[in-house]
Structures are given as structure tokens and as C-alpha cells.
Design a protein around this nucleic acid. Sequence first.
DNA 1: GTAAGAAAAATTTTT
DNA 2: TTTTTCTTAC
Length: 776
Amino acid sequence: MICMADNISQIDKLLNPAQLAAVTYCDGPSVIVAGAGSGKTRVLTYKIAYLIAQGFPASSILALTFTNKAANEMKERIMQIVGEKYTRYLWAGTFHSVFLRILRQEVDAIGFLPDFTIYDTQDSKSLVKSIVKDMKLDEKIYSASAVFNRISAMKNRLIASDDYRADSDMNRDDYHRGWQYFSEIFAAYCTRCRQANAMDFDDILLHTYLLLKNNPDILAKYRNRFAFILVDEYQDTNIAQHRIINLLAKEHRRISVVGDDAQSIYSFRGANIDNILSFQKNFEGCRIFKLEENYRSTQNIVDAANSLIAKNRFQIPKRVYSNLPKGDKIKVLSCFTDRNEAEVIADEIKSAAADRDAHYSDIAVLYRTNAQSRALEDALRNDNIPYRIYGGLSFYSRKEIKDVLAYMRLVINHLDAESLRRIINYPARTIGDKTVAKLIDLSSKHRISPLDCIFDIDNIPNDFNAGTRTKLKKFGELISNLTEVYRSSDAYSTANAIITASGIMEELSSNDDIENVSRRENIHELLNAIHEYCEQKKSLGEDNPSLSEFLSEVSLLTDQDTDRDGQRDCVTLMTIHSAKGLEFAYVFVAGIEEDLLPSSMCQTEYEIEEERRLLYVAITRAKRRCFLSYSKTRFRWGNVCYCSPSRFLSDIDEQYLDMPQAFAQYPDEAPSFERGGSSFPSFVPPHNIFKKASLPHVASTELPTTGNLRPLGEAVNNGGNVKFDFSVGDSVTHAVFGRGTVIELINDGSNSKARVDFDSSGQKTLLLKYSKLVKN
DNA sequence: GTAAGAAAAATTTTT
DNA sequence: TTTTTCTTAC
């Protein structure tokens, strides 16, 4: 208590005037615009500590973040300021975890059963896939990712499947782009989720919104419970999150949001930068605090980043500055190939580690796409530089882990058809596709879950043969036995029973392939995690920590949260997106090239601005030194691509850049030009010859009406669509298939396809943007 | 019904 | 280059 008072009384010495003002203003809504490196987390944590000191019980403060890591860090730091007993009941977590907690509490009001399952993206996509298959639609046109992404985008805008079906505009658009069955798939998806007593990530937000909107008493309860609401990274909120916050805060208006519009990089996932840009309008009388002093980076780095972001048209005016030393200029590295780029970076890392006594853990290499990591990994491994790579497959999405989790889910939630499908024949029980299809059929005919069909197989008319029926019954028995264990013991015992009784351990012990060994290790690691979880819960006084709670928490964890050896001294490799919120003394940003950063997918001004913010985020991760590299050529899906430096490079004021010497010619003898024995072609075409030659841009006036899928309300596509210069009947040549005749064109913006009848290999449908089809 | 091998297609970012 | 899908032989 004394400790707490002490810490808080010192507050004016620990914060600068802007930070202090932002922390101590608690009488109404406020938005804190926090420039990169301006002590945003500090303000947030001190603000919470201050609120507690002002007499707000911790249990009445709601603090929302985007990652578990951010939430945990925040809790940790508040604990250090005010002590554990004040923070124990703080509602601090991610949007998803806090709202999931509320949904589980109010489960009756949303029409789900307790212990509903959370589907991750993989589960969701595989559900979409099976629906498309059941509806006998073309899986190429209705690809699981495209369909799921659109479903997700709709839910993030709070458009449920019924609303969608009722919207004639959207249905008409779908019809025109050959997606007339989308609304039906959407509806089926929602039905199947409900039948399975399952929710996906987006449903957590959607159902929270509907719960609060449709139940005034419940809304009142949570309005009272959360007397003060704080939101981190507000520029990344989507419409659903924004509206939920509004419901909770509109009445008492004790809300404070923190964010930086210049660091909004998640619009592809529904983040709506307008949420922060218009926050003041939304909450009348809202005060705005700007944190403009950057404590992280040298002046050169801050100034360079400023000169870059100044090229964006839409932003909140602010002047970020640094009082640290000027520092070195940003070094631009010009390279020949992606391999060469990786080697150059590895060399710079070595000299940084040697000359400037930096630890490897002070160094990060950032890139736009995960595919770029391979070359970098190779080079670092070659030079014996230890590294740790983030992204890729997270622990909880590994096959063996998902298999075990699927058993757990099915045991907990017998309605979960997706999990059942995953494991009914794993380990192999000779229950094949045919049987599963029949079972699913039976289940929808009788309106009971597939597992209940199995339990009741003797009483339901069916055409399974005796052998199949026995196998199904045996599987049913396995699940009901495990369910008994689940009901009578704790999470760890249940997990143990699952991996032995299911035969998974036996399966993985059949041989000692390196793959199998690592799978066994992973499963043991999962068991350890469960054990740890149980012990922790028990120490908090819970006597029977259930597997269901564990699963619920685990379903919202991501890669970064499960980092188990963060201590080692090694270089960090990650995408720019995942670097947000982090800082490193040395930052390398690789692949500063057109079609990579900005990505080739970007067409509109609006999208280009987001890519520019992405580079802004990357540069502002650096504390002392920043390097930007680009390569003249790059291996992409097996062949050489010629690249030109990113336009963003010329957006940065050159006084902050240390540019490489101008290029002479491609050195014929450059050793790193060789890959797999084949040397470079002697003919070097100018950049993007294929694109420029055959794909002229269409002027905005003749924009085709069948553009990319773009939800209403987002930026209009002003002229970026690409027209392909082919017509039916054209004679064309393909690098692999040879000569052919165009027999059909499918115009779908950048995903346009052509159906071509090849002389030698028959008809094929080709994506024009990749196929490099040439008109004869 | 399964597993291995061949052929074809696909590449942005992920709470 | 890697991943996914299709084919074929057990």
C-alpha cells in the first residue's frame, strides 16, 4: 500500500508533461495519439495504476489489447507499480479473450451450450471446404480461403448471414462476379457452426455485440462493471470491436484509447483506421493528447521515417521528434540476388556483432513475406549466426497437436463435427471418406450430431455393413470412455488418457523417424503445458482445473505467446507485421522492392499508403542503426524475377540515407549469380517486361464493374484494375504447354483467368497474372 | 481403403 | 521451390 502510494506520488517525475496529462485526465473520453517509441505502454500502465490510486477497484477497469503478449506485459508492469493484490482482478486481455469470457458467462443468452468450441482459421476453412463440396460447387471458384475471408470480413462489419441474404445489392454483385451461391455457403457455414456448438474468431466479436445490443439488462451489467475502459492500438480495431466499445462506453464516457494512425497495418483483416481518425467526433468533448517525443530511435531514424510517412495523405497531424544523438544514416544495401542480399545482411550482422559489441538479440531482420526468410536463414546458418524465426507454423497449429486437441474438443463437445471428422480415422481405423460421408448424411437427415448417430447406430436405419458398424461403434466407445475420464478427473489425466487410449502415442512410436521423434516431443510438450496449467490453477485454489478451460485459453494463443526459448542470444527473423510493438538496436529491412514492398497485390492509393505505413513501422523499430536492402533479381516460385527498388526508397529524404555507389553493369563474374549450377541468362530484360508489355492499365473511366471483392465502405478501387489483352480465339503461347487457343475469358480483376485449348496438352484454365501467356 | 509417387498449381500480411 | 491434388499399385 505504501509502496503503491510512493510510486504514484512520483508520477510527475517519471513522465513527461504530455504523458502526465494523458495519464491524469480521467473525467471524460480521451484519445492518446502515441507516435512510435513515445512511451505508449508506459502511459497505459501508469494510467491504470493512477486509476487504481484514484479509488477505481481493479475489477472495474477494462484494458483491451490485441495480443496476449501485450496484455501480459501490461499486467506485469502494473503489478510492479501497484503490487499484485491490486491487479489480480483487473480485466486486462485481448478483445477475444475478454469477450470470450463474457460469452461463456452469458452462454444462455446467446443460445449456445456451455463449453462451446472455438474454431481456428484452419478449422473454419476446412468447414467451408466441406460445405462447398456438399453443395457440389466448383472448389476453384469457391476457394475455401476466398469464401472464408469474405465471411470473416462480413462478420467484422457485423453483417450476419441473414443480413447478407437480405441485402439485394450484395447479392446482385455476387451474381455478377459468378459468386451467386456465396450467401448460401455463408448461411450453411453459420448453421454448421451452431449445430457443432462452435464459434470462430469473428463470432466471438459478433456474438458479443449481439448479446449486448439485444439484452439491455446484460448491457447494463457490464456497463456498470467496467467503470473505466482503456483500449490499446485503437488504429487496429475493426467495426465490430469499435461498436462493442461504443455500447460499453457511450453512457459513462470513461474511456481512453491509445493508438497511432501511422502504424495502422491490419486493414486487410478488417481494421478500420477511421475508428481512431473519427474518435473525437464519435465522443463529443473528447480530449486529444499527442505523445510526440520518441525515446527509442536516433534523430536520423526518426527524421527518415517522418519524411517517408509525410507522403501519406490521410493522417492525424503530429510532429514526432527525438532528442537522442543524431546517429548514423540509414544504410541502403543494393544487392544482385536474394541470396546475395542475405549474405550482405549476414556480413553486416557479423560486423555489427564484432565492432559495436551488439548482442545477436539486439538485431532483427524484417521482411514483407514469410517466403523471404529462407534465403536469410541459409545465409545466417552458413555464417554460424544463431537466429530465431517467428511466424510460420505455430505450436498449436502443428498437425499432431491439432489431432490431440481435436480429441479433447470432441470429448468436451460431442456436437463438434469438425473435430470428429479430423480424428475418426486418425490413427487409421479404416473408416474412410465413404463412411464419413454417409455418416454426415445420416446426421443431417436425422438432425443429430454425427457422434450421436454413432452412439445410436443400432436404432437408426442405415446401410453400413456389419464391419463398418463395428468400427464406428468402437470409435464411439472410445469417445464415451474418454468422456467419462474427462468428467471425473483433471485436465492432465484426461489428456494422458486421450493420447494412450486413442492410439496416437502408439502410432507415433511405431518407428524412430526424425519426424516421429519430433512429433512425440511436441505432444509431450503439450502435456507439459497442460500439467503446468493445472498446477498453476491449483495454486490459485481451483481443485479440478478442467480441460475445457485450458482449451478455451489455448485456442486464442498464437505463435509469439508460446515462445519457449526467448532467452537465447540470437538474431530475430520476422515479418514486419509481427514486429509491431517491438524494438531492436539494429534493424535490417530486406526486400525494399516494387512488387514486394509495396506488395504486388496493392493497387489503390489507399492500399499503397498502408504499405508505406508498413515500412514506417519497420524503420521505427530501430533504436540505433537501420539498414534497408533491395535486390535486383529474386527467385520467386522457381524462376528469376527482375526487381526494381521500391518507390518508398525515394520517398525518404536522401539526407538521411547512406546510398550505395551507383551500379555499373551486372558483373558477369559475380559469384553469387549462380544457383543450382545454372548461370544467369545473358539477356537481361528490363524490369517487369511481361507485365508492362501485355497488361496495360485501364483508365479509371473504363473501370470494369466486376472488380475485386470489396466490402462497402472501404476505399474505392480507383483505376487499379488490370485489363488483360486477350480475346477468345486468340492464338497464344505458354512457356510449358506451348501453343494454344483462348476459348474462354473469366474477368475477375487481378484474378482473371483464361481457358486455353493447348495443341499438345488439351484444355487448361490459367491465372493470367502468373501464367505469362503471350499472344502470337 | 491406404500409401506412395506423379503431376499440377500456387504464393501477403494473422489477432 | 513447396504444397496440394490426383493416380496407381498394393
